[in-house]
Design a protein around this nucleic acid. Structure first.
Length: 588
DNA sequence: GCCGTTTTCGGCCCGACTGTTTTCAGTCG
């Protein structure tokens, strides 16, 4: 059983315990352990065999035993008993807005309601409103929540959330009563999947800003509106929250509402260790909870708050309690890669396979947009559905690309198209094209496109064999996941990273917003092993070049710097690196 | 269930908003 499965089960145990009315701190312990497990860079098997599980913060004796049982036997008796003691439908009910563990338990205990459908019936017949603690309004709200969940997704891709958030941020910025404003929450942290979008504003007239926010075009429903905050549902079905504070409070509130929750808890604890209190209203010289302005440590920006806590500024992308404090404590934060550092993309498609543009159109677009180089890597023949290229068509494409480059050169232009392929990794780990064809290409990306039903050891071996081929520069979208759509295929990424480190093979960070693959959580490990990253937009049409900005944000979440990313190199250095990989490869 | 410069018990982040209450519980972030 792998980390994701273990984390999922621990998470579920936490929820089930909540439904049972257990001590909230106990339920929280499970949830926090689940998160910790998910973020581990080492495998659970290894930690267990070396008896190091207990060294992890948040995992004590009880959880150690349960995790060991799960990993070694694939089952957990405690979990099975817990699951059997409650109807499965209760978990679904928790997802309805306004239905928390107490209310779910109440309708179950007192009305025998076990599923969302039964809850709907109970609301329609008026039985829910008659319960203590419920009323007509809660009943109507539950019905609405059920309808809403049927109609809309609850989680959205970052790219979609940004498309909703950025125009609103522009409007807020232009509003006369707005002093400072920003997105906050997971959008500001550049999480790959977003639940809702958060905004923070400082203003002397909060009511006017809140009125504007709730009255905007594109607001479908106002969920809540108070003196300082409001929640709305936007057309398209995403929730947007706005919080308005005074300008003095703004930096503290921005830090607080950017989160993550786990990062904030660590920040608060650091404050407490220094005899201070940190909340959304300020950093206070006090041992007690307070918001007395007299006691506030003046900070004009987030930067100054970190500094007061003995930390270098932590960029929002890193605020996941994922090791950022260890780095920031040293007093200097490395400069993370910026999307403007990227000089081109080394994995893109043309109309020779499943892309849209012609080679000439792509060259024109990339050149005009200031890139130094752009690779064309169409699919190989095994990707039949994508009109994959065989050796013959590939050679013809190479001629066409060279012709385009010749013309560019004549015009005195320094931009270059690079020849390449995204070669399929076949069932046994061989590549879909022979080495002598690959060696004539500038950039070879090797990817899995089939075999999702295979087992982990097999997929891992396929990727390792591809990485060991000295003609392969990098592995493309390593886990094949499609966010909110398709799980990653079973693969042991650490084992693949280890071989990439040995062979000097690079790993792609595919910047397609549904991929972001390799996951940001694995980059610190890859970096520690010396494996280089390539941020590719996997463009199938020119507009996809914009994905590079998103990919760079994800690379920042992974703590990557310019020197960790191959496509920050100039054309000349890149060509050397491409050549060097082939000469340095361990075996072919 | 975890943890310890407050160390084997007693804390564990905490405030805004809503709805059902008539002083507060539940939910949410």
């Amino acid at each position: 059983m792998d980390k994701e499965n273990v984390a999922e089960i621990l998470q579920e145990i936490g929820v089930l315990l909540e439904l049972k009315g257990e001590n909230p701190f106990k339920t929280r312990a499970y949830a926090s352990a689940a998160r910790t497990i998910e973020g581990l860079s080492e495998s659970l098997e290894k930690l267990i065999s070396e008896n190091r599980l207990g060294e992890i913060k948040g995992i004590g004796d009880a959880l150690q035993k349960k995790i060991t049982e799960l990993v070694t036997t694939g089952e957990l008796a405690y979990y099975e008993e817990l699951k059997a003691s409650l109807p499965a439908g209760l978990l679904d009910m928790l997802k309805i807005p306004g239905m928390g563990p107490k209310k779910v338990k109440a309708v179950y205990d007192r009305l025998g309601v076990e599923t969302v459908d039964q809850l709907e019936q109970a609301c329609r017949s008026g039985r829910v409103a008659m319960l203590d603690g419920f009323g007509e309004k809660s009943q109507a709200k539950i019905l609405e929540g059920i309808q809403f969940r049927r109609q809309y997704a609850t989680r959205h891709l970052l790219v979609q959330a940004l498309a909703w958030a950025e125009p609103i941020l522009d409007e807020l910025r232009a509003h006369p009563d707005v002093l400072r404003c920003s997105t906050a929450g997971s959008v500001r942290r550049f999480k790959e999947v977003i639940g809702d979008v958060d905004f923070l504003v400082s203003s002397k007239a909060p009511a006017a800003v809140l009125d504007f926010f709730t009255g905007r075009e594109g607001v479908m429903k106002v969920l809540a509106k108070g003196d300082t905050k409001s929640s709305v549902i936007l057309e398209g079905g995403i929730q947007a929250d706005l919080r308005v504070v005074s300008d003095v409070e703004y930096p503290y509130a921005l830090a607080y509402f950017t989160g993550s929750k786990e990062h904030n808890i660590a920040m608060r604890q650091r404050a407490i260790q220094r005899g201070l209190r940190l909340n959304e209203y300020g950093l206070f010289r006090s041992k007690e909870e307070t918001r007395d302005p007299e006691l506030r440590v003046a900070c004009a920006t987030e930067d100054e708050i970190f500094s007061q806590l003995g930390l270098a500024y932590i960029p929002p992308e890193l605020r996941e309690d994922h090791g950022e404090f260890l780095v920031a404590e040293t007093g200097t934060m490395p400069r993370l890669v910026e999307w403007t550092d990227l000089k081109g993309s080394l994995h893109n498609h043309s109309n020779w396979s499943d892309g849209r543009g012609t080679v000439a159109e792509i060259a024109e677009f990339a050149r005009e947009n200031g890139f130094a180089y752009w690779a064309i890597n169409d699919h190989s023949r095994a990707s039949f559905q994508a009109h994959g290229l065989d050796a013959d068509r590939l050679r013809k494409q190479v001629l066409e690309i060279r012709e385009v480059n010749r013309r560019l050169s004549e015009e005195g232009c320094e931009f270059r198209l690079l020849t390449g392929v995204e070669v399929d990794i076949l069932g046994d780990g061989r590549l879909d094209l022979p080495d002598d064809v690959l060696e004539d290409l500038d950039v070879v990306v090797a990817s899995l496109h089939q075999g999702f039903s295979r087992q982990e050891p097999e997929n891992t071996r396929r990727l390792i064999r591809a990485a060991e081929n000295r003609q392969v520069h990098m592995l493309g979208h390593l886990t094949g996941r499609l966010l909110l759509e398709r799980e990653p295929y079973p693969v042991n990424p650490q084992a693949v990273i280890d071989v990439c480190a040995e062979t000097g093979t690079w790993i792609e960070l595919n910047a397609h917003p549904a991929r972001f693959d390799l996951d940001w959580r694995l980059w610190p490990y890859a970096k520690s092993m010396g494996v280089k990253c390539v941020i590719n937009c996997d463009a199938h049409r020119n507009e996809h070049a914009g994905f590079l900005r998103l990919g760079a944000g994800i690379a920042r979440k992974g703590g990557l710097q310019r020197e960790d990313v191959i496509n920050t190199l100039s054309l000349r250095s890149l060509m050397k690196a491409l050549q060097g990989k082939r000469e340095g490869g361990r075996r072919s």
